[in-house]
Design a protein around this nucleic acid. Structure first.
Length: 685
DNA sequence: GACTAACGTTTTTTT
DNA sequence: AACGTTAGTC
């Protein structure tokens, strides 16, 4: 196991220990970790503070299951992201056996639900071939409805409605009973629209899977029989719905293990309930509770500062995180004149530190609250030729060319899928515009069939002009021809897609809309990536359906992203969870940024505090936090107040300084150097 | 139906 | 400052 900074290592110690061939060693674990690994029966709650070797403990525990003879097919591990899932599987594969690791189910809640629903959604009145709507699909549908139902002039925002819909679904509130009447009617219309398109959104996956298990005892018993041992990682970020799903999934004798840290619960905005972890006993009887409190990641100075902050939160599971790495240099808090200087400071520091310690770029990470904050920092890094990697800025799978390509693949699989059909019906433009699309959709609803069927229906075609009719017929023929090639396996689907995109001149159209060469290149790469991914999936024997499902749920684009790319890491606080870096810069500790403006309004400052806590605990050796007096906002200078959190930090291991002090000193040094250089020249000359 | 120009709006975090 | 949306034109 190589030690690559920025990758979630099982723990700081995992990387320096030789890997145990054919198993793991109890000796390499501390007492609490051993206890966790050995406790395989009944409900178990592992409270794992930051940097306490959580992942290692969980992987060892599951390895232990395999070693004591539990069949891999009976093991389910639920992770927060797909990336975490594949990493966990890989690690267990390395500890026990690759074959067994492959046979286990390791995935996210959402992937698990797709698995359940592909098998049984017909029992709930959906067709088995349902499509999964991503965030942008949802927004598209909702925007249309807002216009159609006359909310546009009242500036009703589709995103806002969807946020409420999501809340309602997660809380189990009926959409028709939502608080705001107009929102409620939009929500109902939205749900009807999804239904008509035989589509589900992310929340529906959970809602329907839970319903399926709850209402159908045979299905429930079947899956309880399959998944005899269930582990849920990052449990602090699960919501009420996921809890209910888990309860359906796990029956007596409740061999369920949940792992998490309530202090790192940072997804409340999407319904995460720390109550799940705080009141775990309420859901599963008499759990064994194990506390992991030995931190192997950070210096005492860093950990002390983090602890002093998180103590301010109420309603926690009290933990006393102890550092195993003593001392360490003090945490620095640096006041900046503006965000420009903040970026310069970071770039210069990275440059200097790297040179001084002969360190790789990967040792450094810059953490920020919102994505927009990265821009200035990127510029400063680019100016100094410092390589950097941005994590999860905009999702790969949310890019237009990717979504379009995937939509075409979906049509090759099933032309009757409305969601992808409507997406690419006129992309690139082929003379089937909005009004025709509306007409076709209405017609499809009348005959109670898919939009595709409407497009092929003589009754519909006779309603449109000859020109439009020709366009439609060309389109349907093109799709059918491609589908036939895929079905007959004349050539692999990725080749069919390539050929198809060439035929419809997709790329040239895309490029026409690009402003820069680099943008063109990005688009090309996007399509290339889809083709590669598709090819890879097919080679692994996956079906088109499976490929599409995986793509729909994949949050993290190229999973080996961090590994492949080199450079300093730029990342949001949210995305940084689970990672660690020797040297961390945490920027923007200002009121309105961290805590975010919205959290102040909504009264969720506790979560912002946890967010800062997560950020601080990412640092292994060095930590610098910054705040600005002035920041650019919408192209205008706005003055900022330092974050209230700053005063909550214990100053025992904290040095408060300013940009001028640091950079001024450096400048002096330089001037001094110049002076002596000049003197030398003078004397020599 | 497609393209362009001007306008207004935006910025939390993500499965 | 940058993006998406809308209105107006061809």
């Amino acid at each position: 196991m190589s030690s690559v900074p920025g990758l979630p290592t099982a723990s700081g110690t995992a990387s320096i220990r030789p890997r145990m061939a054919g198993g793991f060693s109890f000796d390499s674990l501390n007492k609490a970790q051993r206890d966790a690994v050995a406790s395989l029966d009944g409900p178990v709650l592992i409270l794992a503070g930051a940097g306490t070797g959580k992942t290692r403990t969980v992987t060892c525990r599951i390895s232990n299951m395999l070693q004591v003879g539990i069949a891999p097919e009976n093991i389910l591990a639920v992770t927060f992201t797909n990336k975490a899932a594949s990493e966990m599987r890989e690690r267990i594969g390395g500890m026990v056996s690759k074959k067994k690791a492959e046979a286990m189910t390791v995935c996210t809640f959402h992937s698990l639900c797709v698995r359940l629903l592909r098998g049984g959604i017909h029992k709930l009145g959906y067709k088995k071939s349902f499509s999964i709507c991503s965030g942008s699909d949802q927004v598209g549908i909702m925007k249309q409805l807002v216009v159609r139902m006359g909310g546009a002039d009242e500036k009703v925002k589709a995103e806002a409605v969807l946020a409420e819909v999501s809340k309602a679904k997660n809380r189990g509130v009926e959409l028709k009973d939502m608080e705001d009447d107009f929102f409620s009617s939009l929500a109902v219309a939205y749900q009807n629209e999804l239904r008509a398109q035989n589509a589900v959104d992310f929340d529906d996956l959970l809602v329907l899977a839970e319903q399926l298990l709850r209402e159908h005892a045979d299905v429930r018993d079947y899956f309880r029989g399959v998944y005899k041992r269930v582990t849920v990682d990052e449990f602090q970020d699960t919501n009420g719905l996921q809890m209910r799903l888990l309860q359906q999934l796990v029956g007596p004798p409740y061999h369920v293990c949940v792992v998490g840290d309530d202090d790192q619960s940072i997804y409340g905005f999407r319904g995460a309930e720390s109550a799940n972890i705080l009141e775990f006993e309420r859901f599963f009887p008499n759990p064994k509770i194990i506390l992991l409190e030995e931190n192997y990641r950070s210096t005492h100075a860093i950990l002390h500062t983090a602890n002093s902050l998180i103590r301010r939160n109420l309603g926690r599971r009290e933990k006393s995180l102890k550092s195993t790495i003593l001392g360490g240099e003090p945490v620095r808090l640096v006041g900046m004149p503006g965000d420009e200087e903040e970026a310069v400071f970071i770039a210069e520091e990275i440059l200097a530190d790297k040179a001084r310690g002969n360190l790789p770029w990967e040792h450094f990470a810059v953490l920020f609250r919102t994505n927009k904050q990265s821009r200035k920092i990127e510029e400063a890094l680019r100016e100094r030729k410092i390589p950097y990697r941005m994590v999860g800025a905009q999702s790969f799978y949310d890019r237009k060319e990717v979504k379009d390509s995937l939509a075409y693949v979906a049509l090759f699989d099933d032309p009757e899928a409305d969601v992808p059909l409507l997406r690419v019906l006129n992309a690139p433009p082929r003379g089937i515009g909005q009004s025709t699309a509306m007409l076709a959709t209405d017609y499809s609803r009348e005959i109670g069939a898919s939009v595709w069927r409407a497009l092929c229906d003589e009754g519909f075609l006779s309603q449109v002009s000859t020109k439009v009719r020709n366009s439609i017929e060309t389109f349907t023929t093109q799709i059918l021809t491609a589908k036939m090639k895929v079905d007959a396996k004349v050539m692999p689907a990725n080749h069919v897609l390539k050929e198809f995109l060439d035929e419809i001149e997709y790329l040239p159209w895309l490029e026409r809309g690009c402003k820069s060469e680099s943008e063109k290149q990005q688009r090309q790469e996007g399509i290339g990536e889809v083709l590669t991914e598709l090819s890879k999936a097919l080679q692994r024997g996956k079906s088109l359906r499976k490929f599409l499902d995986d793509s729909a749920l994949a949050s993290d684009r190229e999973d080996d992203d961090l590994e492949k790319k080199s450079g300093a890491t730029l990342i949001t606080l949210h995305a940084s969870k689970g990672l660690e870096f020797p040297s961390v810069f945490l920027v923007g500790l200002e009121e309105g940024v961290l805590p975010h403006q919205r959290s102040v309004v909504e009264g969720t400052k506790d979560e912002e505090r946890r967010l800062l806590y997560v950020g601080i605990t990412r640092a292994q050796q060095r930590l610098a936090m910054t705040y600005c007096t002035v920041r650019m906002k919408w192209g205008q200078e706005v003055s900022c107040q330092p974050s209230g959190f700053i005063l909550e930090l214990d100053d025992e291991h904290l040095i408060h300084t300013t940009y001028d002090e640091i950079m001024g000193a450096e400048a002096d040094e330089e001037e001094l150097g110049n002076f002596f250089g000049g003197l030398k020249n003078f004397l020599d000359g």
